[in-house]
Structures are given as C-alpha cells and as structure tokens.
Simulated assay, not measured.
Amino acid sequence: MSNLKTSVTAPSVISDFKEITKMRLALSVVFSSLAGYLLGVDTVDFKTLTLLAFGGYFMVGASNAFNQIIEKDLDALMDRTKNRPIPAGRMSVTTAFIIASIFTLLGIIILYTINKQTAMFGAISIFLYTCVYTPLKTKTPLSVFVGAIPGAIPFMLGWVAATDDFGIEPGTLFALQFFWQFPHFWAIGWFLFEDYKKGGFFMLPTGKQDKGTAVQTIMYTIWTLLVSIIPVFGFTGSLKLSIVAAILVFILGLGMLYYAIRLFKDMTEKAAKQLMLASVSYITLVQIVYVIDKFIR
C-alpha cells in the first residue's frame, strides 16, 4: 500500500514544483535569453549557454514562486489559479519561500559566473516582478507597464551574457519584447476578464473590454512591428537584419496586427484568445528568424 501511496504522491510533487515555478513560462523565457545570447556571440560557448539556461530558469522560477506566495489569497478566488499548490493547500508558504529563495540565490550566482552585468539585470527583473509588478496588479492597469520591464529583460540578458556590454543592440532587443508584451498581456486580460475581476485584478488599460483597450492593443502591436524591423536600417550597431529576414519579420508582425484588428472588430473573448496565441507564435518565430539570419548571413 505504501508503495502505491508514493507512486501517487510523487507525480503531484513534481507537478506542484512545475506549477510553483511556472515551468512552461520559464522555459519560454529561457528560450528568449538563449536567442539573445546567440545574437550577441561571435563563437558559441556551450558552457555559457548552459549557465544562462539554468540561471534564467532559476530567476523566472523564483519570481513566479514569490508571486504565488504574495497572491495566495487572491489566487484562491480565481478559477484559473485556485488549484495552484499554495491556495489548494498542497504546499506551505514556507516550502514555497524556501524554493523561491534557493532559486534566487542559484540564479544570481550562476548568472554572476557569466558576468556581473548579467547577474545585475537578473536581480533587477526579480525585484521588479516581485516587489513592484505583483503588488500593483490589484491597484492599477499601469502594472502591465511595470511587468513588461522584467518580461523584456531575458532577450536582452542573453546579449549582455554574450558580450558583457549594454548598448543599442540589447536595448533594441529589450524594446522589441517590451512593446510586444502589451498586446500579449491585454489579450490575456481580455479573455480572462471575469476571472481576473474575482481576484481584483484590472489588467486592461481602460479597465474594461472596450474599444479603448482594443485601440491601444493595435497601437502597441504596430510599435512592436516597427521595432522588430529597425535592425535592417543599420543603426543598431552589430545587431543586423537582412532584407529577407526583415520582410519575414514584417509579415509575422502583420499576422499579429490582423488579430489585434480582429479583436477591435469582434470584441469577443475568442478574438482575444486568438490574438494571445498569435502573439506567442510571433515572438518565438521572430527570435528564430533573427538567429537564423545572423548565422546564414
């Protein structure tokens, strides 16, 4: 019987660990930072690449665990989050805090072994996410602006890890992922509007599912599109983009813009969900195009 018990509890411990660190989200962030690294290096150092992957994962995992500790009472109110390990009672706050603290230390130490600047940006992202973005979520829609900063750091972090330098190149990568987060976040805020309301979160810029929110979503999608093709014009230092790659990136951007306009026209949760999926595809594909373009140019 005891054998059966362990086989039942083991998967739930693993799934709770994945849940508290938001493994899928963390892996997408790691993907961004690795893309940034590949764009910044002359020759790929697999040791650094591995350190960056683990360091990045620990940083995001720590931010998510701290976030879930702070929001445990609000998470219990929302259908989307009430089954998370802490509000569901499967994990104590102490355990989560230990995980978050260990992850923070490991993340900063690992990133520090790459270089000091990488560790500094990693630490800034944890601080902003946990201490500024999380508390602001129930206070003001401006929380999305704050949350977009740590959310935009990974792409840039990879470049800094590769070069130990912060300049126009990582700045451009940061701007691209910064602007992208608004249509992405607002799409999520739109189709989860009622659920977010239960927890007291107001993520949409006007606080409502209205034309004002839809217009701002279109505006930020256009900004994202424009920033993503800037490297083709040659004034972003060593971050370059060929004409072919720029056209590809522009077409991907038009795809996302199509869904943003659809949201404006339809004003439905289905349209918002489609925009969210389009935004995820967009950022992943743009990063892949950037990296492939660099290595075949």
Rank of each mutant, 00 (worst) to 15 (best):
G89V: 08
R84T: 06
Y220L: 01
L77A: 00
Q181V: 11
Q177D: 13
G61Y: 09
G89H: 08
L51C: 07
S242H: 15
L136M: 15
F127Y: 12
L252R: 00
V44C: 09
S143H: 08
Y282I: 10
I98M: 04
K198P: 00
T268P: 03
A161Q: 01
A123T: 11
M1R: 13
Q177T: 14
K265H: 09
L25H: 13
I168M: 03
A53W: 02
V215T: 07
A272W: 00
F235L: 13
G253T: 14
D165Y: 11
M256K: 04
S15R: 10
M256F: 12
L157S: 06
A35I: 06
N3F: 10
G56E: 03
T6Y: 13
V93E: 15
D42E: 15
I243V: 15
I98K: 02
F166E: 05
V44W: 07
D42I: 12
L25A: 10
Y112L: 13
L51P: 02
M1Q: 12
G207P: 09
F54H: 08
F264A: 03
D266T: 09
M156H: 01
V249G: 05
I114K: 05
F155T: 07
V249L: 13
N83S: 11
K270Y: 14
L38Y: 09
G234F: 09
E71A: 00
M156K: 00
W180M: 10
L241W: 13
T104D: 03
G199Q: 01
R297M: 11
S32G: 08
S101G: 01
K208Q: 12
T138W: 01
F46K: 01
F182N: 03
G200P: 02
I283E: 06
V93H: 06
I296P: 07
Y259E: 01
L4F: 14
A76P: 06
S7N: 13
K197V: 06
W180T: 09
F202K: 14
D42H: 12
I99K: 03
V160M: 01
Y259H: 07
K197D: 12
F179Q: 01
L252K: 02
K82H: 05
F17V: 06
G255T: 13
R24A: 12
D16S: 10
L142Y: 14
V227T: 07
Y220A: 00
A214L: 04
S12P: 03
Y290N: 10
S28N: 12
Y220E: 00
L252Y: 00
K22S: 08
K139V: 12
G61I: 14
A26N: 10
M1C: 09
I102L: 06
I149P: 05
I168H: 00
I288W: 08
P231G: 11
A162T: 02
S125Q: 07
G107S: 15
E194R: 15
Q287L: 14
S228D: 10
G212L: 04
P154F: 01
I14S: 09
E194L: 12
F103R: 04
F264C: 02
R297K: 12
F174E: 05
F182T: 07
Q274D: 10
A123H: 04
T95V: 11
A53F: 04
V44S: 08
A88K: 03
S92Q: 07
I98S: 00
F250I: 11
L192F: 15
L225R: 01
W190N: 02
